[in-house]
């Protein structure tokens, strides 16, 4: 999922300066799962902002709604009229949701969160990054543990000399991805995969050439 975290209230307050009525929109997608942008968190954010405005002697009215996803316009369109009497829309979604919302609304759409990474809830309270979205997945070769993302040095032929007792030399709190790859492949009985040399990564599938897009001719409908 996409993991995000709240911006600080003063930063959001500054973005909303001059506004008296705001539509706060939550997202029931990834940000709900990472406990920052679902219905509960949207109500909490709205209450926090109303109070922050009142501390300054100002008044902020809020309306809240949480939609299934903000990265799909079919869920956005039914709520567009809710912003008719609002000065701005505050999106609790990831950066994708904020941008698509901004295309649909006529008032400014502002981000309430910093979108951080693609990750998972590793322990009860730790979200960790597990995918860089590089565009060329080679997980099959590494026991489904991504060295591009999870090795601090992005090594494809690891480990480096800084791996010690399963931890990374840059931070003892970071697991050495190559130790994990070794352990996984050993468990699967496929340690021989590590004998193969992995050539330098082809980064042209990543940010090379600007924003990426995928054209799906099979789902495209011809305009009549």
């Amino acid at each position: 999922m996409i993991v995000a975290e709240w911006k600080k209230i003063p930063e959001i307050k500054q973005m909303l300066a001059g506004c008296s009525r705001v539509l706060v929109v939550g997202c029931d997608g990834c940000v709900k799962v990472c406990l920052t942008g679902g219905e509960r968190e949207t109500d909490t954010m709205a209450a926090a902002l109303r109070m922050a405005f009142r501390v300054d002697g100002n008044r902020l009215e809020t309306k809240q709604i949480t939609i299934k996803r903000q990265c799909d316009d079919e869920f956005i369109d039914p709520i567009i009229s809710m912003a008719d009497d609002c000065d701005a829309v505050l999106s609790m979604a990831c950066g994708v949701g904020v941008q698509l919302m901004a295309e649909r609304f006529d008032v400014p759409v502002l981000p309430a969160q910093n979108t951080t990474f693609l990750g998972v809830l590793n322990e009860k309270d730790v979200f960790v990054e597990e995918c860089l979205g590089c565009g060329l997945c080679e997980l099959g070769q590494f026991g489904a543990i991504c060295p591009v993302t999870r090795c601090s040095k992005n090594l494809l032929n690891g480990p480096c000399g800084g791996s010690s007792e399963g931890k990374c030399e840059i931070d003892p709190d970071i697991d050495c991805a190559w130790q994990q790859i070794y352990d996984r492949l050993k468990k699967l009985g496929k340690l021989d995969q590590l004998a193969a040399f992995v050539p330098p990564k082809d980064w042209t599938t990543s940010r090379d050439g600007g924003p990426r897009k995928i054209v799906r001719e099979d789902i495209k409908l011809e305009k009549r």
């Binding site: 109303r50 109070m51 009142r54 501390v55 002697g57 100002n58 008044r59 902020l60 809240q64």
Partner: peptide
């Protein structure tokens, strides 16, 4: 409270 007796923000 700093927000008391100031304008009421209805949600």
């Amino acid at each position: 409270s700093p927000i008391k007796n100031k304008e009421t923000g209805a949600g």
